[in-house]
């Protein structure tokens, strides 16, 4: 007589680096894995240690944000079965992601090839007719844990819903600030710089300590932003920078100053920051470039004097 054996489905632990597009897709990614019963671990917030670890592994020409990303990947090694590194290439014509995101999965695997770490990825590429949903379904299959297509579809639907909910929450918070009274400054930068606790958060905190209300060019209705960006540049091909260009157009009349925040070196920002500098008239504008420097004095001097200039202009200093 044959014995019946129960096979337990052992789900892996997935590590998510708290860097780059995590700041855009946190709710989407975390909900998707949770729906499938997969545990996730998040790398700790960026610290000087993470930045230095990452910079030591990256080629010099890579941007600061990718260097930080490698530091986060390193922090996850040994803490999970898979490290999650999606490849997000393009959403369509003139809706491309920076080339770094197309290369991220392959590059990361190569940088960490000696650790024998396993990586998990999804490939979003409109040129191959793979949209976000399809990318997620494909990834679910590569997990090879016996999820049925229906289970995967359901998990994705829940993830997308959570993503939209989180996004609406952000929009609402920004709406609140817009309605408040006070000195408003628009921050223009990628979320992975502005939201990073080591890079961008100190800027927001410092502005708040000076009683400034910081607004964000990336937290606006994305469809409207993409449309408005066409007025500024018909040919810009970068999706996120398009959103930023449109966001600046939508908000520049509501603010007292504009601060461009970039990591060094950033190709797309190098082009669009120049565009913004020429398009934003009558509003004081500050250009901040973040590098591996540790001192905050330079940044604080620039921010403080920028706010002073605005206050001098308003006659309140």
């Amino acid at each position: 007589m044959k014995k019946t054996v129960l096979i337990e489905r052992k789900t892996p632990v997935v590590g998510i680096p708290r860097a780059l597009l995590y700041y855009r897709y946190a709710a989407l990614w975390e909900t998707y894995f949770r729906e499938l019963g997969i545990k996730t671990v998040l790398s700790p917030p960026t610290s000087r240690q993470i930045l230095e670890d990452g910079a030591a592994m990256a080629v010099d020409e890579t941007c600061l944000s990718v260097k930080i990303f490698y530091g986060h990947v390193k922090a996850l090694i040994g803490k999970c079965d898979f490290i999650f590194v999606p490849r997000i290439a393009t959403f369509g014509l003139r809706r491309e992601m920076c080339i770094r995101f197309s290369a991220l999965y392959d590059q990361t695997r190569n940088v960490f090839r000696e650790t024998h770490q396993r990586f998990l990825s999804y490939n979003l590429d409109a040129n191959e007719n793979i949209d976000q949903e399809k990318a997620f379904l494909n990834m679910g299959e590569t997990l090879a844990l016996g999820y049925s297509p229906a289970e995967l579809k359901k998990a994705y639907a829940a993830a997308e819903k959570a993503d939209q909910r989180a996004w609406r929450e952000k929009l609402r918070a920004q709406e609140q600030i817009l309605k408040s009274k006070g000195l408003k400054i628009l921050l223009v930068g990628h979320p992975y710089i502005l939201d990073d606790p080591y890079l961008g958060r100190p800027i927001t905190d410092f502005l708040r300590s000076m009683d400034v209300l910081p607004l964000r060019a990336d937290i606006v209705n994305r469809d409207t932003a993409i449309k408005r960006s066409l007025d500024v540049s018909p040919s810009c091909k970068w999706e996120v920078n398009r959103e930023l260009l449109g966001g600046v157009e939508m908000l520049k009349k509501e603010v007292d100053g504009v601060i461009l925040v970039s990591a060094f070196p950033c190709g797309p920002d190098a082009m669009t920051n120049d565009l913004v500098t020429r398009k934003v008239k009558d509003v004081p504008l500050l250009n901040l470039v973040m590098d591996t420097q540790t001192g905050s004095a330079g940044t604080e001097t620039r921010l403080e004097s920028f706010v002073d200039i605005i206050r001098l202009k308003k006659g309140v200093l």
Partner: peptide, 17 residues
């Protein structure tokens, strides 16, 4: 560089990196 209008500073820039 500091730009001034009507005796009041209105914009400035400083060398970046």
């Amino acid at each position: 560089i500091i730009l001034v209008e009507n005796g009041v500073a209105v914009d400035y820039a400083m060398n970046t990196l």
